[in-house]
Simulated assay, not measured.
Amino acid sequence: MDSPHGAAVKAEDFGLKGPRGWVFRGVGVDAAPGSLIAVEGPSGSGRTCLLLALTGRMKPTEGHAEVGRHRLPKRMAAVRRIAALGPVPGVNDLDQALTVTEQLREGALLQRRYDGPVRALLRPRGERRTSTAARIEAALAAAGLDLATLPKGPRTSVRDLERLESVRLSVAIALLGSPRLLALDDLDLKLSDAERAEAWDLLRSLAARGTTVLAVCSEAPADVTVLRTVPAATATEEPATGQAAAVPRPMDSRITWGAGGTGSTGKQGTAVTAGAADTAEAAGTDSTADTAEAAGTDSTDSTHDTKGDDDALAETGRA
C-alpha cells in the first residue's frame, strides 16, 4: 500500500437542493491535507449528502469545491479516484453472506481492476497475489483489525462482526486504494462510549499518517474540527451563546457554514441549511443529485474524464 498523502478540501458557497428544498447550502471549507473533520448533526440534517457531494458521489447544485485540486462539480470522477468511502449505510454496505477474507479479497480485486494501473494486470499471477496480500495486511494494520481476534479468525462471517469490527473492516477495504480522502458516515451509530473513543482514535491515527478524514457523527470529540448541522425547522435561527455552528480546530483548518432558507445570505458562525427532505429522499429522488448520477453518469463529468463509469463500479466494493 502506497504512503498516504492527504488531499486538501476546500469549498465556497457549496450547496445542494433537493425536490423539497435545500439539503445544505452556503458551505465554506478550507481544510489542510491530513485534517480530521467531523460533520456533526442529527439524522436528516443533510450531513450524509454533504459527505457524498465532497467525495464526488453526489452532484451539487450551487457553488464549488476542490478536493486535492480537483474542482467540483466538473471533476467528480477525478475526485472519486482519490476519495474512498468507509462505512456509508445504503451506499456500500458489507456483504453479510461473505467471510471477512472473502470481503477483503473482493475489495482488493475491484480496486485492482478499476483503480490500479494497467501494467499491474500484466504482472505474473504469483507476484499479483503477493502484492495483494501485502496490501490487505497493511490496510488491516492501519484499520486496527486483527483477524486472529475474531471468533473464527479470517473465516468469520461478516454478519457475525461487532459494530466496531465492521467499521474497521470497511475502513480497511477503503484503504486498499491508498485514498487521499477517507469519508465515513454514522461513525458513532450503535457504539458504546468506549467503542466510540476507539473509533475516533482510529481516525486520528489515519489523519496522523497523512490521510484527510471526513466523518459524519452525532457528537464529535472536543479536539476535532467540527461542522454542525441543524434540522430545517431551526436552520434560520441564530445559534445560542456558546453554540457556534462552526468550531475550527486545529488552527490550520478554517470552516464556515451558511445560514438557512432560500434566498438567505450565509455568514460565518450560523447554522447550516438543511432541506425539508431527509438524506435518503434527497439522494434518491433529486434528478440533479441522485445517487446513480453521483456514481458516474453525470454529464458534466463525462466531458472531462471517461473513467467515471469504471470508478463508480469500483465504489460498490472498495468504497
Rank of each mutant, 00 (worst) to 15 (best):
T265S: 14
S178M: 05
R163F: 12
Q103L: 10
A11K: 01
L181W: 05
T236F: 09
V247C: 02
M76N: 03
K267E: 12
R25F: 07
T99C: 00
V29D: 09
R25M: 06
S178K: 00
P250T: 05
R180H: 12
P87V: 10
D146G: 04
L104T: 11
L191W: 01
V272H: 04
K152S: 14
P33I: 09
S299V: 11
A280R: 07
R128W: 02
W200R: 00
V213N: 02
D188M: 03
P4Q: 10
K10N: 08
R112E: 11
A133P: 02
T291A: 14
D2E: 15
D298H: 11
S205V: 02
E165F: 00
S192H: 11
A222Y: 06
A259R: 12
P250S: 01
T265P: 10
A134N: 10
E281L: 15
L51V: 10
S157C: 13
P4H: 08
V9N: 13
S299H: 10
P42G: 06
R123G: 00
T273Q: 07
A133Q: 06
V213E: 02
S218T: 10
R125A: 15
G258F: 06
P124R: 09
A277K: 00
D93M: 04
L150N: 07
R159G: 12
A220H: 05
V118K: 00
A83L: 09
A314W: 07
T130P: 01
D93H: 07
L227R: 05
T316A: 14
G177P: 00
A289M: 08
V230Q: 03
D115A: 08
K10R: 14
P154K: 01
L203C: 14
L176C: 04
A141S: 13
A53D: 00
L109V: 13
G269C: 00
L16F: 15
A244D: 11
M58S: 13
A240S: 09
E237R: 13
E281N: 08
D223S: 07
K59V: 11
K10Y: 02
A7Y: 08
A276N: 08
G34E: 09
L16N: 01
P231W: 03
E12C: 15
A7R: 10
T241H: 01
S287E: 08
A77G: 13
V88P: 02
R135H: 10
D2F: 00
A199R: 13
D193H: 14
E293Y: 02
E66I: 03
R135Q: 15
L145M: 06
V158T: 09
G28Q: 04
